[in-house]
Design a protein around this nucleic acid. Structure first.
Lengths: 340, 340
DNA sequence: ATATTTTACCAAAACGTTTTGGGTGTCAAT
DNA sequence: ATTGACACCCAAAACGTTTTGGTAAAATAT
């Protein structure tokens, strides 16, 4: 069933049918309703290729999902899932298409963006995993693509972004810990080459200052991609050398599991002798014992926001917006009070 | 740059340019090369909407990814990632498009398949997470969609499929254990409503028969979605009640973590007093101690195979194929030898 | 030398929409 | 009665390809 056949059934011109379905004002209400009724009845759905060709609009948002190196660099798959869920919810609602390329290596990833722009002719893209100085921003700007990023570059240039409040997350944890009289708080971060890790460190430093605690590099460790398996040992050594430590903050679940192991081996009771706080993921609640207190990020909401921003952009006609998601701290009982 | 402009530059007709790029035999080799060179030079890439409209071919494979209930029903996200990676590798190579819908609930999922067929007009789909009696197979068959499934229904009807060898996996484990003189082997499966769980049970039963070991329901437990947190306790009780048990097979990583905990609490040394074997996932190697021996499935290869099959189908012109992936058992040292 | 086949190209139609640039009839205002 | 505004509808052009149904020239066969 195409528009020609449908218009015949209706006794109307193709034009009128098209404009009725498009909601134009030069079609009477009565006709509009009749057309829509018939369209439903005969299961008419416009040929998208013809429609896009004629209108020169793709009505599509593009996204590139890297399928490589996900676990190995400790970026959790589930965080992608949550963000994608948010995007797709919003897009499904708005009847906008969601076109996703999958990249199995860096080369494919680069190609994917080019394909999105030059082959698929997508005009709206959501970017993520920002590098400190990201080539893609130039590429998109140059080709007049509307885009919103998830994450920020170090030098916040002129673009729209949504992000988790990484700095605020650590500040929230620190606040909570200090209120319970913790003073010897160590932080196991991941490599600072990730901008979000850098932001988190800033939160750590800022909080220390705020609460008049001296920074010592003995309490601040970064764990690289190759070390996740060894993190338990690293933390064990740390705890042995620095007996005063009463709280450990871990930037990833896997590290937190290492911290649990270290504490067990040293016979330190978590939630009594020592506190552990980390960032939420699928593993914690399901398989760690005890279930750890953790920062929860509204990643789905972030996906929704990103799409909202993107859709509000209209060619050149928009102002840059941004959105910083508020973190929550869920205390599952692994934070204890230190006696003064 | 469109085909008209390009043909002008070349001094050729639109037809010839189109057919040159399409590789038709009624264009001379010389011209073909010249056209391709120019196309590259001027970065010409055919307008996909026009091309699809004219040729009435979408050259697209459809897939629906459910974003809901993934963790809660113990189906690991990473298994999807690996399968998708396989599909996208093959599709990228063949220059076929990969169209994915994301479903945030059962309703959206159902809709997604309808959209793929009636709106996107995709003619090739890859199906997965098969139910025992799956409506989608009817839908696709009725609408003459070429499809390949990942997984099988109970009553294997007439369709092409790829699958992990679930039955064979358990048989492989059992073989290995029996060779090391294990006789009291318990198996913690997940709910048999998942067809793959059912298949695994068959493997367990078949192996017991083969090795003349009597089946007892004391040794076979299924863990439902609600119990993953409690699995440690379940297994602990099991071990206390049945002191003879020397080996535990777990169908999921999370359960295996529970088994570790149970053994620790009972002071049973894993790999010395008791063996644990499970199915591979991202958690095991990274955070369980010890790293467990496990069945590894070539999920990426499965994705590649599925696409290969699908592309080899040509409308009505094909024979049903299938592919059963061979499992591997990686022994990381948690399987011990029992003295006779 | 003529007939036949093969090679290499092309004009025009087709795909199913949206958009452009109208048109006609009705109603209120003059 | 005429004009202008408005409501409602339409024919035809346009979008950028692929495919159809050719033709002319060159190569081969008779």
């Amino acid at each position: 069933m195409n528009i020609k056949q449908l218009s015949k059934k209706l006794g109307l011109s193709i034009t009128t049918v098209s404009r009725a379905l498009g909601g134009y004002s030069d079609v009477s209400k009565k006709t509009k309703e009749r057309v829509k009724k018939f369209a439903k009845k005969y299961k008419y759905s416009p040929n998208l290729n013809a429609s896009r060709l004629a209108s020169n609009k793709s009505n599509t948002v593009g996204f590139v999902l890297p399928l490589y190196g996900l676990n190995s660099n400790q970026l959790n798959q589930s965080s992608f899932f949550e963000f994608i869920a948010g995007m797709s919810k919003k897009l499904n609602n708005e009847n906008i298409h969601f076109f996703m390329f999958f990249a199995n290596n860096a080369e494919e990833e680069k190609q994917a963006y080019n394909k999105l722009i030059f082959v698929e002719k997508v005009t709206k893209i959501i970017l993520h995993n920002l590098k400190t100085n990201d080539d893609r921003i130039k590429l998109l700007t140059k080709n007049k693509i509307n885009f919103v990023t998830w994450g920020r570059t170090k030098d916040l240039k002129n673009y729209s972004w949504v992000d988790l409040d990484n700095q605020g997350s650590i500040e929230l944890i620190m606040q909570h810990l200090v209120e319970k009289n913790h003073k010897n708080i160590c932080y196991i971060n991941i490599a600072e080459s990730y901008n979000f890790a850098y932001q988190r460190k800033q939160g750590y430093l800022k909080s220390l200052k705020k609460f008049n605690i001296k920074y010592t590099n003995k309490y601040y460790i970064t764990i690289t991609n190759e070390e996740p398996k060894k993190s338990a040992n690293l933390i064990k050594k740390l705890l042995i050398k620095n007996k005063k430590i009463t709280a450990i903050i871990c930037s990833t679940e896997y590290t937190a599991v290492g911290a649990i192991k270290a504490c067990n081996e040293l016979n330190k009771k978590i939630g009594k002798d020592i506190s552990i706080v980390t960032f939420d993921g699928p593993v914690i609640e399901r398989i760690t014992t005890p279930a750890l207190s953790a920062i929860v990020h509204p990643r789905e909401q972030l996906g929704i926001k990103a799409v909202e921003m993107l859709l509000s952009m209209d060619g050149d006609n928009y102002k840059h917006q941004n959105f910083l998601a508020k973190p929550k701290l869920i205390d599952r009982g692994t934070i204890h009070k230190v006696s003064k």
